[in-house]
Write a protein that binds this DNA or RNA. Structure first.
Lengths: 135, 135
DNA sequence: ATCTAGTTTATAATTATTCTAAAGTGAAAA
DNA sequence: TTTTCACTTTAGAATAATTATAAACTAGAT
């Protein structure tokens, strides 16, 4: 992803392209593969990569702004930290609790044959499958 | 579930049946239907129900002891609280984020036709399906 | 009845996250 | 281009869930 696309992505999300946001966006989206991270891990990586220090609160704000804008998805796994995923398409996950690692599973790699109806007046928003791993 | 079974359950789990543990166990397991709760909600309910006050730390300790002993299962949902479930059989969940409510889905109500292989030397521990609801 | 390891308790500590308020900065308008 | 101001960033405080601590208590073996 080129810089111009980063700026477009920010602007289209009504995020003013500030220095910090551009830096975070480049770090998150200028990569080939899906990237899974927690705010904590992202902060550590940004401290190493980036010249200027970015406040933790800014990382929280920006990551949540990207999530609201649909550029990141949130993945809940066992444990107390919140994971984010640069893959925002409908997909599933392996979760390896040995090393707290998430691995994407393409939506078409899992086929569900039978599914119950949503209860009383509710509708199904989406279906998430977690395949928990062991050694 | 009768009191004698509560005591058996505690002893078989190497949990000494203290007053507090018996009270918590009775509250959790002497019921017909599956019970979903957080430590916070359990604490509030116990304050109402129980004559003696039970320390929050004791509730944490006891709930985790029951979990380790296999009498409770832990369910992770979006949000920052940890839910527990008195249904310890293999099953799935509806999650209604509107009112943070979990609803059990029997294992045989969901049939998965196709599933990917576990990566590199890993094995599949279990598969959890979450059906997220909306109005 | 006594003793001891396991338990409960109040409180402190920790961890992830959000809030706050002051200082800084894009970018629209002059 | 300069001014202006709403939006941002920042450090640090506040909050919330959970875990650790250490002293007082208790179940159950002796």
């Amino acid at each position: 992803m080129k810089k111009i696309d980063i700026l477009k992505k920010l602007r289209s999300s009504k995020l003013r392209p500030t220095k910090q946001r551009v830096e975070i966006a480049k770090f998150l989206f200028e990569r080939e593969k899906t990237f899974h991270f927690t705010v904590e891990s992202l902060n550590k990586l940004l401290i190493k990569k980036s010249t200027s220090k970015i406040a933790l609160a800014t990382i929280y704000n920006t990551v949540h702004a990207f999530k609201t804008a649909g550029h990141l998805s949130e993945v809940e796994v066992r444990g107390n930290k919140t994971y984010f995923d640069t893959n925002v398409s409908n997909h599933h996950h392996f979760y390896d609790s040995e090393n707290s690692e998430l691995i994407d599973i393409d939506a078409n790699e899992i086929v569900i044959q039978k599914i119950p109806k949503a209860p009383n007046g509710k509708k199904i928003k989406n279906v998430e499958v977690f395949i928990n791993l062991k050694n």
